[in-house]
């Protein structure tokens, strides 16, 4: 139903482009080299992280630095359950564990506003990492775990499916009254509450939905890495990257985070292979410049050029 409304509302050309992209990405592993498939998997992963982050933090303005926690939960789910259950079940489990963690964290912390929420969510990532490390050192007596490896194409398809489902959810949220409620929270939370929006519920549910997709992405990626430990799984970089990518792209439109993530993910790959020692440095410079000169991201820049383009 949603896809059809998307297609009728946008021009037929837009629909066709989406369809062609869908087909290209579905058939890609049949003819593209393995390197392309792996690169696209990484790009899809970043798009999933970024779009999920923007789903909640974009409209509400609550800057979550928790993605790495949800991503890590997904990774550890894959590591622990991977041997015992079928892959798809493992991945869905990864999503649900993240979902429930987000429900819990959300219920506890979403009353914190502004910078406190950002600090708290970041603390969460490090707390889980340190506790897990302690657990592994003292209870299980091992450091790190092995994850069952899965073929490139399987990983690609699962990540792709995850991304498509996420995008459908994201479009649905943006166009539904739920999306309107999210925006109203970002604009003025008090006024939203007094206009009948159950702000707590809307925030927690959206936070958890966004965590679900980050968790599934983690579970999928774990099968690529084969070896993980707490600091690989709960790497704070996976909290920062989605934020940077989303801000770089701009959170005003759905395609902002997508483009931002695609560009950054490709850039990461490019820089890591060419300038392995300078890539984080170049990243930092791009980030500072982006914040200084395009505070509304690529979306804002393009809209400025078009000037007054149809914003609904």
């Amino acid at each position: 139903m949603n896809i059809s409304t998307v297609l009728t509302k946008r021009s037929v050309v837009g629909g066709l482009v989406i369809l062609i992209l869908l087909i290209i990405f579905i058939t890609l592993p049949l003819y593209a080299p393995a390197y392309t498939v792996i690169l696209l998997t990484a790009i899809f992963m970043y798009i999933v992280l970024t779009v999920s982050w923007a789903l909640f933090s974009g409209p509400t303005g609550y800057m979550s630095l928790a993605p790495a926690a949800f991503f890590g939960v997904g990774i550890y789910t894959a590591a622990i359950l991977g041997m015992k259950l079928p892959l798809i079940v493992v991945i869905v489990c990864g999503g649900f564990f993240s979902f429930f963690l987000a429900l819990l964290v959300g219920a506890l912390t979403l009353r914190l506003r502004g910078i406190y929420f950002a600090i708290f969510t970041f603390g969460l990532v490090m707390l889980i990492a340190y506790l897990l490390l302690f657990w592994e050192l003292h209870v299980t007596g091992t450091r790190g775990r092995f994850v069952i490896a899965v073929g490139h194409n399987t990983v690609y398809y699962i990540m792709y499916g995850n991304l498509v489902i996420l995008l459908i959810v994201a479009v649905f949220v943006r166009r539904s009254k739920f999306g309107l409620a999210l925006r109203s929270i970002g604009e003025n939370e008090d006024a939203a509450a007094h206009t009948g929006v159950n702000v707590t519920l809307v925030k927690i549910v959206t936070f958890a939905i966004s965590a679900f997709f980050i968790g599934t992405a983690g579970a999928v990626m774990a099968t690529r890495w084969t070896y993980i430990d707490p600091f690989i799984a709960f790497n704070p970089l996976f909290s920062f990257m989605p934020v940077l990518m989303a801000i770089f792209g701009g959170t005003g439109q759905l395609w902002g985070p997508i483009i931002g993530a695609a560009i950054f993910a490709y850039l990461e790959e490019f820089l890591i292979t060419r300038f392995p020692y300078y890539y984080m440095l170049i990243f930092g410079i791009i980030l500072v410049i982006a914040i200084l000169y395009m505070p509304k991201g690529l979306v804002g820049l393009i809209q400025k050029w078009r000037k007054g383009g149809g914003v609904v």
């Binding site: 009254k177 309107l180 003025n188 006024a191 939203a192 206009t195 009948g196 159950n198």
Partner: peptide, 26 residues
């Protein structure tokens, strides 16, 4: 329902969306 001493509209949302939120949720 209430209004506020210092106005609290949703500044970035259109006028229609502001009111729509009330009919959809309130």
């Amino acid at each position: 329902a209430r209004t506020f001493q210092s106005v609290k509209v949703f500044p970035g949302m259109s006028v229609l969306e502001n009111v729509l939120l009330g009919s959809l949720f309130g």
